[in-house]
Design a protein around this nucleic acid. Structure first.
Length: 336
DNA sequence: AAGTTCTTATTAC
DNA sequence: CTAACGGTAATAAGAACTT
């Protein structure tokens, strides 16, 4: 889906259309602590991007419309959109509320008919939900995703596998999923280039990449050549459930910290009920952004929530007494 | 020495 | 001039600890 959260807000309030719109934390006169969740294309013209500090978005465009995240609304619409997908396709992988991979290998014989299916899906979503979306089509998940990026907004794009390698060779290495700023920097350092492209990275051997980047290096070697064998996975089991909370202001008020901790722990328990808890992790982020975790594992027995809570508190107290910095964030996660 | 657990870092959305 | 930075979840690597 194109700029999903912001597009939904435009649909619900048509007078927002044409104006820069940012969905995310409240900027509070430029002092808010959150980030941009999604913004429309008008906001992007000011340089606003998702993941950016909301205070920065505010300074880039103070006149933009800033809206809080209305997650329950977006979830409801996401369910409707996935119903449309489900009606026409059997094999798909939900990546997030607004993104999915669909495997149509068995349903079509050529890319032209794949494109027709993509068009039909986009039309259907627009007809039912009045929301625009984009489709990318290629021979594997990575290339389909890249095609989709090129298709946006409100478009469709086919990359024939025979053209994959050539098309990505011009692009920055960060087009490959799994390569973020840090990995890009490592590759750039090796190649002596600030903005390494895929074609530069193609000079590196599989062994070199593995040495530099660990086991993922081998996958990257293939991906730099347009090859990705990762399957479309229909069901992924949940391995952990957690909650985090960032305070309005950094604090050392232990009553306040524990009160918040208790609240998020209970939310986690609510979501994890019926599941066996294998371990817990407590996280603290300090005022200087240093982030520390403490975890314990449990045997196969089931304990009551109060037992896990007390274990959590003792981990939290351990983190709190480690130094006397103020706390920015607390979190609690269970392995299930 | 091998297996498990703990901690941190990185990434995606 | 630079930094600013949520929440949820997965994965990898290396250290630390057990068996």
């Amino acid at each position: 889906m194109d700029y999903f959260f912001a597009q939904i807000e435009e649909r619900e309030n048509p007078h927002f259309k044409g104006k820069p719109l940012v969905v995310g934390a409240d900027p509070k006169k430029g002092k808010g602590r959150g980030v941009v969740s999604t913004c429309n294309y008008e906001a992007r013209e000011y340089g606003i991007r998702s993941g950016m500090a909301i205070s920065r978005a505010y300074s880039l465009c103070p006149t933009a419309i800033f809206l809080p995240v209305n997650m329950s609304l977006y979830k409801r619409i996401s369910i409707s959109v996935f119903k449309i997908i489900k009606k026409s396709f059997s094999k798909y992988e939900k990546v997030s509320l607004d993104e999915a991979y669909i495997d149509i290998t068995e349903k079509v014989n050529n890319f032209k008919s794949a494109e027709i299916k993509g068009d039909t899906l986009r039309d259907e979503i627009y007809k039912r939900e009045k929301l625009r979306s984009s489709v990318g089509i290629s021979g594997n998940k990575m290339m389909a995703k890249i095609a989709c990026e090129l298709a946006k907004p409100n478009g469709i794009k086919v990359i024939l596998p025979k053209n994959s390698k050539k098309i990505i060779s011009k692009m920055g290495v960060e087009v490959v999923p799994g390569i973020g700023p840090k990995t890009k920097k490592i590759i750039g350092r090796k190649l002596d280039k600030k903005e390494p492209r895929v074609k530069d990275a193609n000079t590196l051997s599989k062994r070199e990449l593995k040495e530099m980047l660990g086991k993922r290096g081998e996958d990257f070697y293939c991906m730099f050549r347009g090859i990705d064998h990762s399957p479309v996975e229909e069901k992924r089991e949940i391995k952990s459930i957690g909650r985090e909370h960032t305070f309005q202001e950094d604090t050392r008020d232990s009553a306040k910290i524990i009160e918040t901790f208790k609240k998020i722990v209970n939310e986690v328990f609510e979501e994890a009920k019926n599941k066996k808890i294998k371990g817990i992790t407590v996280v603290c982020r300090f005022e200087d952004f240093q982030t520390r975790t403490r975890q314990i594992s449990f045997d196969a027995k089931r304990y009551d929530n109060d037992f896990y809570y007390k274990k959590g508190i003792s981990l939290l107290l351990g983190l709190l007494t480690e130094n006397n910095k103020k706390i920015r964030l607390v979190g609690f996660r269970v392995r299930v």
